[in-house]
Simulated assay, not measured.
Amino acid sequence: MNVLIVEPGCAPYEKEIHGLREMQAVVGGLIQAIYPYKEPVALVCNEEALLLGLPFNRSVEGGYGGICGTFFLCGLEADNFCSLTPEQVRVYKKKFHHAELLIGANGDELITMKVPPRRKDHPPNQRHPPDPRER
């Protein structure tokens, strides 16, 4: 199924995954699905993210607070996960485009700051691709 993967600090990207083992590999452990949206979309994350101390990723409206660790979004079909539609991919890429830094909390409300994401293929402290002439 075609999903949208959202890693901490990175822009979302599409990936084809199949089966429970690949889902667990994406999130780094046991999966947990939450359903914060009216449309048939699941946000699948690591069930033990807080216990494992995974890094803050993004905030999610609707009383869900924040998600730690890598998560993916997929479609829902009856009681099964399925591929996102092209329109859902477009909507959620835009929604989760900016990375977020967790600044603090005010009760149950998270205080975050949106920042430009890094590309998946770039290390966190590298702003530009290395210049091949500098080798």
Rank of each mutant, 00 (worst) to 15 (best):
L4A: 05
I31S: 07
L50R: 15
E134K: 07
N106L: 14
P130F: 11
V60C: 10
H18P: 00
K120R: 14
Q24S: 13
H97P: 01
N57T: 08
K114I: 06
K15M: 14
Q32Y: 14
G28Y: 12
I67G: 01
H122G: 00
C74L: 07
G29A: 07
D131R: 05
G75S: 03
S83Q: 03
V41Y: 12
M1Q: 08
E87G: 06
G107T: 00
N125P: 01
M23R: 15
C68V: 00
K94H: 11
Y13C: 09
R133G: 08
G19C: 09
E22L: 04
L4S: 03
K15E: 15
N2Q: 15
F56C: 10
H122V: 11
F81Q: 01
K15P: 04
P40W: 02
M1H: 08
T112A: 04
E7C: 08
T112M: 03
Q24E: 15
K93S: 13
H18V: 13
E16L: 09
L43A: 09
F56E: 09
E39T: 08
L20C: 03
R135S: 11
A25W: 04
E48C: 06
Q126T: 09
T85A: 03
P40I: 00
M113N: 01
A99L: 04
M1S: 12
P86A: 09
L30E: 10
